[in-house]
Simulated scan of single mutants.
Amino acid sequence: MTDPVIQTVTPTTHDLGDFQVRRVMPSKARQMVGPFIFVDAFGPAQLDIGKGMDVRPHPHINLATVTWLFEGAIDHRDSLGTFSTIRPGTVNLMTAGRGIVHSERSPQEERAKGPQLYGMQTWLALPDGREEIDPAFEAVADLPVIEDHGAKATVIMGDLWGERAQTATYADTIYAEILLAPDGSIPIAADADERAVILVGGEAQIGGVPLTLFDMAVLAPGEAMTLSSRTGGRVMLLGGEAFASRRHVWWNFVSSDRERIEQAKADWSEGRFDAVPYDDEYIPLPETPKTVSYP
């Protein structure tokens, strides 16, 4: 039998003081899985009273951000005038397209009691011909939930287990949160070009291969397999259509064209992006960003 896991990517951990962020992509080991080009798991964390997440306004181009929370809440504001409080069970999809600016902060009521933070931040590269679409935002709470054999799976994006999420997709995309009870299991279909799983809590195996907490296990293409747990676990499934053309990453910018990224850098430095209403702070363009693509 083919090994169900063809690659394991260990995250780089960034300690932000009050909580940790574990980044598995982009990395030297792996650039993309389907349209996913950036994958962070942040937390779990319990912050002190009065503290919170404060990600000041910053720009994006040629991508869509997907925020999914297990615990806590985040206030999202963007240059379209959107205000949305992200909570567990609702997916926030922000499409940058030709350019958007947003901020992410802990709500005041969360700060008053000491915020919890635990969730996933991922970016999807936009496909050829759609990188410069108009920016957009949506929050989708009515998501399909499948329960069987001690597993509860929420379909965040795409078609899985005979159900389709209402969340917009720009390329073929699958994304789901899977909660496994002790001795629970769920089949993982072979339909997507590329698939990966990330254990974000507890214990689980894929095709009998144990998963390591926060590592990304890239699955063998074309192979149906079973995700299971002896004692209970939480797993993210992600993937979709393999991109034929290269994507470059520099800071918060993704594009098939390096010159487009240089233009975005100049636009941000010179104040040509739209502002976020009611949030007049901003993150300056870094000299050396932590997020880059690799040759």
Score class of each variant (00 low, 15 high):
Gln7Met: 07
Gln7Ile: 02
Val9Thr: 05
Thr10Glu: 14
Leu16Pro: 00
Val24Ala: 15
Pro26Met: 07
Ser27Asn: 03
Lys28Trp: 04
Arg30Gln: 11
Arg30Thr: 06
Met32Asn: 11
Val33Pro: 00
Val39Gly: 11
Asp40Met: 02
Pro44Tyr: 06
Asp48Met: 08
Val55Trp: 12
Arg56Ser: 06
Ile61Ala: 12
Ile61His: 11
Leu63His: 04
Ala64Gly: 09
Thr65Met: 14
Val66Leu: 15
Trp68Ala: 14
Leu69Glu: 11
Leu69Ile: 13
Phe70Leu: 15
Glu71Gln: 15
Asp75Ala: 12
Arg77Leu: 14
Asp78Ile: 05
Asp78Cys: 08
Thr82Pro: 07
Thr85Met: 15
Ile86Trp: 12
Ile86Leu: 15
Pro88Cys: 08
Thr90Phe: 14
Val91Met: 08
Asn92Val: 03
Asn92Ser: 11
Met94His: 02
Thr95Phe: 05
Gly97Met: 01
Arg98Met: 15
Arg98Trp: 14
Gly99Pro: 13
Val101Thr: 09
Glu104Val: 01
Ser106Leu: 06
Pro107Asp: 04
Gln108Phe: 08
Glu109Val: 04
Glu109Ile: 04
Gln116Arg: 14
Tyr118Ser: 08
Tyr118Cys: 07
Tyr118Gly: 04
Gly119Tyr: 00
Thr122Lys: 02
Trp123Ser: 07
Leu124Tyr: 05
Leu124Val: 08
Leu126Gly: 03
Leu126Lys: 02
Arg130Trp: 07
Glu132Pro: 04
Asp134Trp: 09
Asp134Asn: 15
Phe137Ser: 07
Ile146Thr: 06
Ala151Met: 06
Ala151Asp: 07
Thr154Asp: 01
Thr154Phe: 03
Met157Trp: 02
Trp161Asn: 08
Ala165Met: 05
Gln166Phe: 02
Thr167Ile: 04
Ala181Lys: 08
Ser185Thr: 06
Ser185Gln: 09
Ile186Arg: 00
Arg195Thr: 12
Val197Phe: 00
Val197Asn: 00
Gly202Asp: 06
Glu203Lys: 08
Gln205His: 06
Ile206Thr: 00
Ile206Met: 00
Phe214Met: 05
Val218Glu: 13
Ala220Leu: 04
Ala224Asp: 05
Met225Val: 13
Leu227Ala: 03
Gly233Pro: 03
Val235Pro: 01
Gly239Asn: 02
Gly240Asn: 05
Glu241Arg: 15
Glu241Ala: 15
Ser245Ile: 10
Trp250Leu: 09
Asn252Gly: 10
Asn252Ile: 02
Ser256Gly: 12
Arg258Glu: 15
Glu259Leu: 12
Glu259Ser: 14
Glu270Trp: 05
Val276Gly: 05
Val276Thr: 03
Pro277Cys: 11
Glu281Gln: 12
Tyr282Gly: 13
Pro286Asn: 01
Glu287Gln: 10
Glu287Arg: 09
Glu287Val: 06
Thr288Met: 10
Thr288Ile: 14
